[in-house]
């Protein structure tokens, strides 16, 4: 399976990895796939919008539920990859969900804020993604369902140059996919 990363806008979904997920989902034509549209300015929570949510957040087996109710991301302190107690609680939920919904695999994306060199941030993002992967594995999720990737500072979700944005960019996001690696 080759993931084609296209740095394009897809129905307002801004992120490369979202586009990637969409392409993967389209290729597999799985109902469980989702276009979370979580950065959509419209904030549309309903079904059936452009690129519509295939799974409802009301459905605890859906990716939308994972993303919105469980929480798909954890945040980190400057230069750190250690998991806060809040992050660990989120990852507990992720692990339980992944143990229940075994059709899903995940790519864990590590990110950094823009304060740092490109190379260092790539390595730092990898540390963060790895910390999440190790935690999920320690809670019983099979390692062969998880892959990690670092985007360094290449894909911020918040674009201001203040700590208010930086703290949201220092993140690791568990992006669900179906059948990756199978």
């Amino acid at each position: 399976m080759v993931l084609k990363a296209k740095g394009m806008t897809t129905n307002g979904a801004k992120m490369t990895y979202l586009s990637k997920t969409l392409i993967l989902c389209a290729g597999l034509a799985l109902a469980a796939c989702t276009n979370p549209n979580r950065f959509d300015d419209g904030g549309g929570a309903g079904l059936g919008g452009a690129g519509g949510l295939a799974g409802s957040a009301q459905d605890p087996t859906s990716a939308a539920y994972f993303q919105q109710a469980i929480g798909d991301r954890v945040l980190f302190a400057v230069d750190q990859s250690t998991l806060s107690s809040e992050a660990q609680a989120t990852l507990e939920g992720q692990a339980q969900w992944l143990m229940t919904n075994r059709d899903f695999t995940a790519v864990i994306e590590g990110h950094a804020d823009e304060q740092g060199t490109r190379e260092y941030n790539l390595a730092l993002g990898a540390r963060r993604a790895n910390a999440v992967q190790e935690y999920l594995i320690s809670r019983g999720v099979s390692g062969n369902r998880l892959r990690v990737v670092s985007y360094g500072k290449e894909r911020p979700i918040e674009i201001c140059s203040d700590e208010s944005c930086y703290q949201k960019n220092r993140r690791a996001v568990t992006v669900l996919a179906a059948g990756l690696g199978s």
């Binding site: 740095g7 394009m8 806008t9 801004k14 992120m15 490369t16 950065f39 290449e154 894909r155 911020p156 979700i157 918040e158 674009i159």
Partner: peptide
């Protein structure tokens, strides 16, 4: 090109 959060390179 493009904005910071979806920069094309």
């Amino acid at each position: 090109s493009g904005p910071k959060d979806q920069r094309a390179k």
